[in-house]
Design a protein around this nucleic acid. Structure first.
Lengths: 204, 204
DNA sequence: CCTACCGATCGGTAGG
DNA sequence: CCTACCGATCGGTAGG
């Protein structure tokens, strides 16, 4: 790729990165292209030399991040570890995404409603696929004779929600170290799934 | 109160209820007063005979709901049940708020960022008070010799986040009944807190 | 990459 | 409760 094109592409990445931070901070509809341009040091009109539109940026942020999650899920399939280990891997992956890729992950989980069709359906379709697969991994971990109906669904929702809730920890003074937080989440959520009082049939 | 005033106040409540539903569905900044007016069957200008401004509606929705949560927390103090029962009561209260008062609860937890000062600080102050009190209840439930640092904080975050995550269940086909969902959440989150492998010192 | 500008839409007001 | 309208701001384009 010629130098000029590589530079332009690098600038596009910078713009999208700043956009992700602002979408996270103020929400997509409340972020104006003029705010974004100022943050970067351009006039608003100049942004359009690098990006197509505001909505295109939202799409890029969300689908890139979603595809990373899907890729991790597929890679889990190829491992031959037991199901509890797979659930732990899922928790750790999402916690790390939330910590290391805070803006992108937050925008994906909170701003996807502002996608326009057909991208909105495209996203919800991918998400439906992801959560179903995740639920089936949890279900396999619980064994055949689960006591409560819909518990694998509840657990899947709770894990994803718990990670999303780390937003408040991220915003706060952060008295707890990232590694400790990750371990705490695993302990709390896995122990709930491996507690014999709730799930007497769990295969350890 | 004279009849005319009572009627006007009832219409205000109707407007705020519709506003809550729209703020939840599309987000506060993406909801226009013209959309809201159309939903109710008025011209946009006529809304201002009943409400002061768009932001005033957001404030009313959020602070009313927040005060209900605070009131429940204070009432917990007066009970002399043990700490695990208090945690269970907290979980059940929030799950029910999420189910029965979906729009208001969702707007409070997701749209508070769009409050203007001084209301924004007012809200974050109340929330800080709430979560600290909630954390101290959980900490008391864990006993003095908790194994992991910051576990009561993690548990508090996880409980609140898990309830917020019920949004996806609410949007979905709802194969699981509300009562079952509530029981599942309690089982999953409480068992995590009462698991001797994680918390050997828990006072039951 | 900027100046200049477009049509559309926003929250809200005046006046009846 | 409506008509008519305000200034501000939005995403985006033309033309250089």
């Amino acid at each position: 790729m010629p130098l000029a094109k590589r530079k332009k592409s690098a600038k596009k990445e910078l713009i999208i990165k700043k956009a992700s931070a602002m979408f996270r901070e103020k929400g997509y509809p409340a972020t104006s292209m003029r705010d974004l341009a100022e943050e970067i040091g351009l006039e608003a009109a100049s942004l359009y030399n690098h990006i197509q539109s505001k909505s295109e940026m939202l799409q890029e942020i969300i689908f890139r991040t979603a595809d990373e999650c899907l890729q991790h899920l597929e890679s889990l399939d190829e491992e031959d570890t037991n199901c509890v280990a797979k659930i732990e891997s899922l928790i750790r992956f999402h916690v790390r995404m939330m910590l290391n890729r805070f803006d992108d992950y937050y925008v994906m989980t909170n701003e996807w409603i502002h996608l326009k069709e057909p991208h909105l359906s495209h996203f919800t379709g991918k998400r439906r696929y992801y959560v179903q697969k995740m639920e089936s991994i949890i279900e396999a971990g619980l064994g055949n004779k689960t006591t409560n109906p819909g518990m694998s669904y509840t657990a899947m929702l709770t894990i994803l929600a718990a990670v999303r809730g780390l937003e408040f920890w991220h915003r706060s003074a952060k008295k707890i170290a990232p590694g400790t937080m990750e371990d705490n989440m695993v302990a709390l959520l896995i122990s709930g799934l491996t507690d014999d009082k709730v799930f007497p049939s769990l295969k350890k």
